[in-house]
Each structure stands twice: as C-alpha cells, then as structure tokens.
Design a protein around this nucleic acid. Structure first.
Lengths: 196, 196
DNA sequence: TCTATGGTATTGCAAACGTAATCCAAAGAG
DNA sequence: CTCTTTGGATTACGTTTGCAATACCATAGA
C-alpha cells in the first residue's frame, strides 16, 4: 500500500497543497478543518505536521500556489493582445466559472477572508497576485507594463467582486445579467485605458 | 442590575443583532463563535437560544439588518443626483472605509462567505442588496430606475471587490493607488452610462 | 540486518453549537 | 402586603469538531 519512492514526500506535499486549495475555495479557510482536508488527500490527521508547521503555514502556501497556477493558466491559455484580454474577461465573468467554485479563481473565492489573515499570509498573497497581475498588465500595455499594473489590479478586483456577488444572489436571472454587465464594464474600461 | 422593562427582550435582541453584524464583518462568519459574540453583547452563551433558533438564523438576520442600515445611510447621507453618486463612490473607496472593518460595508467584508451560506441566508441577502441597489439606481437614472438596477448592482460588486483587494494587500502604497484607480473606474463608468 | 523516513493511530486539549436545569427580579392576584 | 407566576438570563453540561502533538509501525535502501 505504501511506497516510499525518492520523491514520495514532495509528491505528498504537493497533493496536500492542491487538495487544500480546492477545499479552501469551496468551503472557505475557516470552514475547512485539517483532518477533513487530509482525509480528502487520502491521508490521516497526524501526517499533516510532517509537511507543515501549522494550518496557517498551509494556508499561506496554498494561496501562493493557487495564484501561481492561475497566473500560469492565464499566461498559457489566452492569446496575446486585446483579444486575449477579452477572452480572459469573458471566461472569468461566465456562468461556468461561477459554478465551478473549487476550480475557479482564488480571489473570487477567498478575498475577504484573505484580508483577515495574518501578515505573513497576506504578504504571500500580495506577492502572488502581483505576478498574476503582471501577466495581465503585459497584455494591456506591452511597452509600459508598470504603469498598467494598478489598472490590471483594479480589473482583477472588479471581476472578483462581480463574481462573488453573482454567486451570492439567489435570483439566477439577475446573476447572469450581472455577469453580462460586468463584461461590458470591463471591456469599456479596457478601451478607455487603451485610448490614453 | 436586571430590569425587565416592557420592551426589554426586543432591545436585547437588537443588541445581539448589531453586535453580531459588527463581529461578523470583523472576524468573518465562520470566525465568530456564538459564546464570544454573546459576551460582546454583555450576555452569556445560553441566552442566545431564547432569541434565535440557531447561529444560521442569526447570520440571516444580521446580514439583512446590515444591508438595511447601509441602504438607509446611503439614502440619508448622499446628496441627490450625480454629485451624490460621486460622494458615495469616493466614500466607499476611501482609506477610512478600508480601515474601519466593523463599521464598513457588509458586502466588502462578507461577500464570498455569503456565497457559501444556506439558500435561506442568500435569499435574505438578495432581498437586502436589492433594496440597497434600488437606492443607488434611483440616483443614476431617476426616470428609469429599473433599467439601472443591474448597472448599480455591478457598481456595488466592483467597489466591494476593489475594497477587499485593497484590504488584502500588504503594500499600503499600492493599496491606496488601487482605491484611486477604483474611483476613476467607477466615475468613468457612471459617465458612460449617463451618455446612453 | 539496521536505520532513517514517512506514514498511521491515538491522544490531549480547547472551542464550537446546542440543550437543560436552575436562578432571580418583576408583576399581578388574592 | 404576600405569594405565585413568569419571563429572561445564568450556569453547567454533552457532543462534536478542530488544531496540535506524540507514540508507534512499515518500508526502502545502505
């Protein structure tokens, strides 16, 4: 049953991090317990502390990982230029993304909880989100990405908030209309930024 | 010490709701326990269940209350017309609002957690947020508030997400710049909506 | 065969939600 | 004016769950 290959431990660690990322996004950070989470990863309670110093340590690691994955998938998937940006926006503010909590954006799922986390966790979040945002900014203004950084950050905030709101509403018609309006807003701003 | 006036119980209930609203916004819903919360309200654990059927019952009530208070203060404080809208946006996306978690907007503090709440709670949230949004929409298009409803909702989502993001960042310079950018974005969209 | 490693199983302890027994001040009836 | 009722709170408890730690075990590889 148990095989102790060379890279076994690091694989296990990886599995825990990925499982945690999904669970946190689904049930929230405070809503996810360590033992439940470990069971999800096919392990037991005690094994956790061979990999992480504390739950907070895992939270920090998992958030950083989630943002890295998102940054990579954004960079990998989208076409270059304005077309890619529109693609990102439409994908983000789509009913499919709204439905798939566990596979979705960590910002939309966790942003307000992250704001209440420890300084260390928020630092890791900040580092991670800046990498993600850099990828977006590079598409917005390839020649001067630094000036576009804040704009890209604001775009992310807008989209995350819109998706959260769409998830919270019980009226699904209204939730869909909200997503459409969000797309319009984002594209309008992108065009406005392009002009100056 | 104890006075059992005519409306004593309803006053106590009110106190619990207000205390809960503040605590939820500060520490999150999952992060706030019933007994801690009751101690804040000057009561003990057991008294809670004379007022609410469950924690979830309180959550639903507190969220509805928070939104009602916010709607009233928005309606009361802001001037009519576009000036009032700008006032609302600038106040919302301000460092002061970012700092005062407990007195701030329940959407910015709790939106992603609300998305994970029970159907009942989310229904109460939906009802409450629609009242709030109605107040904003009325300022945006006094003649046709219904068509402005989704736009107002999207504005709220944008602002809440931006504030959350600003709270999560550890770089305070960047967090401030983000708020400024958020104001620009919101005002630009308001102007664009005005034109058509 | 022996040892380091990466697990499991078990345990301690605190906190959470919720229930039940009890207590106490005020109000009302006789 | 006294005695009973009653409403609202306290205290204490049970159960569950969460985080954390530790004792022990199985395997891989020297």
């Amino acid at each position: 049953m148990v095989r102790y290959g060379k890279e076994h431990k690091s694989e296990t660690r990886r599995r825990i991090i990925e499982t945690a990322g999904r669970r946190f996004k689904q049930d929230g950070i405070d809503g996810s317990g360590v033992s439940t989470l470990m069971k999800d990863a096919g392990l037991t309670n005690g094994a956790f502390y061979a990999h992480f110093a504390s739950k907070d340590d895992l939270v920090t690691t998992a958030i950083a990982d989630q943002l890295k994955v998102q940054a990579e998938s954004v960079v990998a998937l989208a076409e270059p230029g304005r077309a890619g940006l529109e693609q990102i926006v439409r994908g983000y503010l789509s009913p499919q993304h709204r439905e798939r909590l566990g596979d979705g954006c960590p910002n939309a799922a966790l942003l307000d909880e992250i704001g209440r986390c420890t300084e260390t966790t928020r630092q890791a979040y900040t580092d991670g989100v800046l990498i993600l945002v850099e990828g977006i900014a590079a598409r917005m203004a390839p020649e001067a990405p630094s000036s576009a950084r804040v704009k890209a950050l604001s775009l992310l905030g807008m989209m995350a908030g819109t998706l959260q709101l769409s998830r919270a509403l019980t009226d699904s018609r209204l939730a869909d209309e909200l997503l459409d309006q969000g797309v319009d807003n984002a594209l309008a701003l992108l065009d406005a930024w392009q002009r100056d």
